[in-house]
Amino acid sequence: MAKAEAWKPTLSPGFWGSLAVMGVGIVFFIYSLQFPYTSEIGPGPGFFPRWLSGFLIVLGVLYMSNSIRGKDKSEKLPSEKGLSSILFILGSMVGYVALIGFLGFITTSAAFLFLLLRKAYRWYVSLAISAIASLFLYALFALFLRVQLPMNGLGF
């Protein structure tokens, strides 16, 4: 979405937003067709989903017409620099989710914090903060609150 925005600067974010809303509406509407519309006592499992997703499509159309007519003054999507830092954070979070099962909580958390803190402080300061914070959170959640955190093969 953001890239497309850069290519076609004339279209507002609202346009793409309305497209996304319609898209969600259409996906849910099609999906909802497989559930019975009625049941013994009245509305079936397909009743509400069909009406709601249908309504969402209509709202998407209204939203698009508002944004094309320039009534929509919502914020612009981020600049390239802003975008890259957002993507970096998201990438780190996705990496965190992907790796925590293998590397265990402490290692993954320390790596995650280090990645995000790396430009805020000198690298050894960041490393120290990351390690201490991860160990502290481990102690807090795993030892004090007894949450079963993911471990690696060596047990941490």
């Binding site: 890259s84 830092s85 970096f88 790796l99 293998f102 590397l103 265990g104 290692t107 993954t108 320390a110 790596a111 280090f114 990645l115 790396r118 430009k119 690298w123 690696n152 093969g153 060596l154």
Partner: peptide
């Protein structure tokens, strides 16, 4: 993100991951 430290950072991240993996062997 852009900077001369990029290489060092990547190396360090790689190092951390490798060490962790080697520790993770059951």
């Amino acid at each position: 993100m852009v900077g001369k430290n990029m290489f060092r950072r990547t190396l360090l991240a790689f190092f951390i991951v490798t060490v962790a993996f080697s520790l993770a062997v059951p």
